[in-house]
Write a protein that binds this DNA or RNA. Structure first.
Lengths: 349, 349
DNA sequence: AACTCAATTGCACAAATGTGCAAAAGGTGA
DNA sequence: TCACCTTTTGCACATTTGTGCAATTGAGTT
């Protein structure tokens, strides 16, 4: 066939997973395989060469080149972004950006997909969208939750330097320390971005505000709170009262009936990073927040980049509350929820 | 087959070319096809879906999806970068960066390739490497030449806003105005980056310095000189006396034998943007420079990002002179020339 | 409404890529 | 040096993608 090149892949058929990069033994010299992967990626993606041609030049087989390229994709050597200028973005994205003051990324999904499938598609696209938004020397606050857990399973590597991933909200509850679940999420983020991980091993909620106050006075906790206050990027989902796939906050041993009753009394519609808010975005006077391990919204808003990931129409009330609270700078959501958001805003405007 | 995805392409087998983006008719609403291309790109590159699955969801055929993705690649919707952290870069890149104080990008080539083939590979990889280095609101100075001409033929789109491409050096000579050749190069850069183009329709060299001084006093020329002085990025090749593929400067009606004799007398080894320098990088007292239309090196050095593209060992003397003159911040060169550069430096150091 | 021309689309085949599996190679310990 | 285990590699087949060409569709003109 006449012509210079063939389709270039980003992901192989198996899930892209964060791979362990071979660390150079000394002085920055990379391993032979990592160099081959870099070289193959340059020839394939930048020079439009076929794998056959690359194989001949590297004196190996075509399938080895295919594996080198897979490795290059998994280890972050290949970075792919899908961009379009704002004025050519879908109307939906422009409208959400304009009306809510966020950078909207609308994820294509099927109209008829059920929520688990929608979550998977949002998670994988969000994982790929977040990477390019990060830089080096970043302090990345991550709020564990079901959406962010799904995202963490799809992260591809983005090589950063001197970055820190810090846990925003405690995970302990009356049945488990929660450390395994949350720390796995944090570990994946740390690994993907080559960042140091700072966990926050406290309960999601304290039984008494005075216990929280006492813990917050402990120097070990103050160290984490200090990091949180200096974070440059926050990554979080939204919990929503009434959601079909309940966030961990409303299920699984976190809140007893009394606590749920208090939330209802305070007209809570959702939470971000374990901190509750009302439909109008206010959080003052919500008693449960005095017991919550999550950051004050003022701390969250201090982060320059605040990435909110939302999947499923059932999160609409929580999402609207989070937007009203001004918690996000970037919003990644499925298009059915995006349409619903715009529609509900039109009805209420 | 069980598994989520297949290889995702960057370039189809035909050369990637800068396509005419359909301009929205009014108010930012994009065309249906452009939206489909964006959607297909998100599903393919970010969600690991196959073209078959995308075709079913978009209710079209697989080959249409293939073409939508080709279009997305050509129009800059898909941006691919090959990165590696400095400490994992090839030794050669690290060494050049360290010894010459530039960000080196070494292009893999075959040892035995002849210069035309090497140029093609350098050009296509350079074209793909330059795009991500540019931002919006940029003033991009471009010096026409054979290397930059080759690069311009491979540029992929990078959508920027309010950018300007300005021509750095005149192209007229005693046989032709040179406008067609240089303007085609500038046009391609302008089109690729969505930038306004400012041409510089003056001769490459004036017969007398006084003519240059007179022209430089003209307001129409001052407008271009002002742009050049404010450029944020410069893109240029290097001419080298003795090169096997001569730059246009040394051939084709630009310099008569007297001029060439003057260059030899001044121990000139090469030029950048039509301005000559010696082996040690100095350019003072080179008489031909008084007649040259190219910018003072102080103007060039004022640009924050200065991208130098070099292909072929025969350019080594010009390259060394340009490095000694501190003209580049980023250097893109083939690996045979890179090895030679390091070797010659070791011999002389 | 009809005609013409250009653009788009889908089919069928060619080309390119992914991967299971067995063989080969490399590393480690005795 | 040998044995064993792990990792890497290449073959063969499966899967996915690219594209020439003819058909279809859309736009513009008469």
């Amino acid at each position: 066939m006449i012509g210079p090149s063939v389709p270039r892949p980003f992901a192989d058929r198996h899930r892209t997973r964060t791979a362990e990069l071979p660390v150079p033994a000394s002085g920055g010299a990379s391993s032979s395989r990592a160099l081959d992967a870099l070289r193959a990626a340059q020839m394939y993606y930048l020079q439009d060469m076929t794998m056959d041609a690359i194989a001949r030049e590297l004196r190996t087989s075509r399938s080895t080149v295919s594996r080198l390229l897979s490795s290059a994709r998994e280890t972050g050597v290949v970075q792919i972004q899908i961009t379009s200028p704002h004025e050519r973005a879908p109307q939906l994205e422009q409208q959400i950006s304009r009306e809510f003051g966020v950078e909207a990324h609308v994820v294509p999904v099927t109209e008829t997909g059920h929520e688990a499938e929608v979550l998977e598609r949002v998670a994988i696209q969000a994982a790929r969208t977040i990477g390019p938004l990060l830089g080096s020397n970043a302090i990345i606050g991550v709020a564990w939750g079901s959406t962010i857990s799904a995202v963490s399973r799809h992260l591809t590597r983005k090589i950063t330097h001197d970055s820190t991933v810090v846990q925003l909200n405690g995970a302990g509850n009356t049945q488990t320390t929660g450390i395994t679940y949350a720390s796995e999420i944090l570990r994946r983020f740390g690994k993907a971005y080559g960042a140091r991980v700072e966990q926050f091993p406290v309960p999601a909620f304290f039984d008494r505000p005075s216990t929280k106050t006492a813990m917050w006075g402990e120097r070990s906790v103050q160290r984490i709170l200090d990091l949180q206050s200096r974070m440059t990027t926050a990554i979080f989902g939204v919990g929503s009262v009434g959601s079909e796939i309940p966030s961990h906050v409303y299920s699984g041993g976190y809140l007893d009936p009394d606590a749920l009753a208090m939330l209802a009394a305070d007209e809570v519609v959702g939470d971000a990073a374990t901190v509750f808010f009302r439909a109008d975005g206010t959080d003052q006077g919500i008693a449960m927040n005095d017991r919550s391990s999550g950051p004050d919204f003022s701390v969250l808003r201090a982060a320059r980049r605040r990435i909110c990931v939302v999947s499923g129409e059932s999160k609409i009330n929580g999402l609207r509350g989070a937007l009203a609270a001004g918690l996000a700078t970037d919003l990644i959501l499925d298009e059915v929820t995006a349409r619903r958001l715009v529609q509900v805003a039109a009805e209420n405007g």
